[in-house]
Design a protein around this nucleic acid. Structure first.
Lengths: 143, 143
DNA sequence: CCGCATCCTAGAGGATACTG
DNA sequence: CAGTATCCTCTAGGATGCGG
C-alpha cells in the first residue's frame, strides 16, 4: 500500500509510534490483557480473577489491577462486608480498547500459520549457515 | 456492552487472550513498533532506520529486525555491493497488522486526556491515604 | 477474602569495541 | 555500511509469608 521513499522523516515516525507505546505501557505487561479480557465480560471479584487466569500470582494480579485502575481502565468497588468483597468492572474506555484488541486477535488468528511457516523457514536457513558453510550466500535473498 | 456474569469460564478467557499475547510477543518489545512504523512507509536501509529511530542502539536495532524478519513481518534484501547495502521492507501481513495498530493509536489519542485525569486522581487519592489518616474510607468508592 | 511487604532471579536492553 | 561479540545493569515478575 504505502510506497513513499524519503530519507525517512524521523519525527513523523516518533509521532505515530509514541501513542502506541503509551498503549503498550498500559497493556503490554504479562497479565494485563488477560485481566482486561476477563473483566470486560462483566463485574468480577478478586478471587474469581485469580482462578480464571491460570498461573498468575496474587502479587501480580494485584499489581496489574492497580495499574489498570490507575489508568482509568478499571473501577474498583469495595463492599464493606466481613470478609470484605471487592469487585472490578471495566470502564467504557476499556471496553472501547477491548474492541480494538479484538481486531488484533483476528489478525493473529488469520496469520498464525503464516507466521509459523516464516519462523520455520528462518530457523532452517539460520541453521544452514551456522552449520556447514554453504557455497552460496548466507540466509537471505541476495538480490 | 457485555454484561454476562458466570463464575468466569476460565478457558474462554485463555482462548481470547492467547492470540493477543502472541501479537505482543512479536510487537511488544521496546523498539518493534517504531521499526514497524518506519518500515511500513517503504523500503529502508539499516542506517536510515538507525537515524530515524531516536535512541536505539545498533545492537537492539539488529535484534529487533531479526525478530520481525523471523516472524515474516519484514523482508531483508542484501545488495552485494561494496560496501554492502541492505534493505528492509514490510510484508503484506505486516501492513495489515499496521492497520490494526493505527486503530490503537487513535484510541490512545482519543483518550489520552482521560487517562491522564484518571492517573492524577488515583495518585492523589493514594497520597491521601498514605499521608494523614483520613476519617473516611481509603481511596475507593466504598459502596 | 483481599492484599501488602520482602526477597530473589532471569532476561531485556544499554554501552562499547571489533570486523567483512 | 551493516552488522557481531562482550560485558554489565536494571527491573518485571515469581515465591512466600503476614495481616486486616
Amino acid at each position: 500500500m504505502s510506497q513513499r521513499n524519503t530519507p525517512v522523516p524521523a519525527e513523523e515516525v516518533v509521532a505515530e509510534a509514541c501513542p502506541l507505546r503509551e498503549v503498550l505501557d498500559r497493556v503490554g505487561g504479562k497479565w494485563s490483557i488477560q485481566v482486561l479480557v476477563a473483566v470486560v465480560r462483566g463485574p468480577i471479584r478478586f478471587t474469581e480473577l485469580e482462578r480464571s487466569i491460570d498461573g498468575i500470582s496474587r502479587r501480580m494480579l494485584t499489581l496489574t489491577l492497580r495499574s489498570l485502575e490507575r489508568d482509568g481502565l478499571l473501577e474498583r468497588t469495595v463492599y464493606p462486608t466481613v470478609p470484605a468483597k471487592v469487585e472490578y468492572r471495566a470502564t467504557p474506555i476499556a471496553e472501547e480498547l477491548h474492541q480494538h484488541l479484538v481486531g488484533l486477535t483476528q489478525w493473529a488468528e488469520r496469520h498464525r500459520s503464516d507466521v509459523a511457516v516464516a519462523r520455520r523457514a528462518y530457523d532452517l536457513a539460520a541453521k544452514a549457515t551456522t552449520g556447514l558453510t554453504q557455497p552460496f550466500g548466507p540466509r537471505t535473498n541476495t538480490a
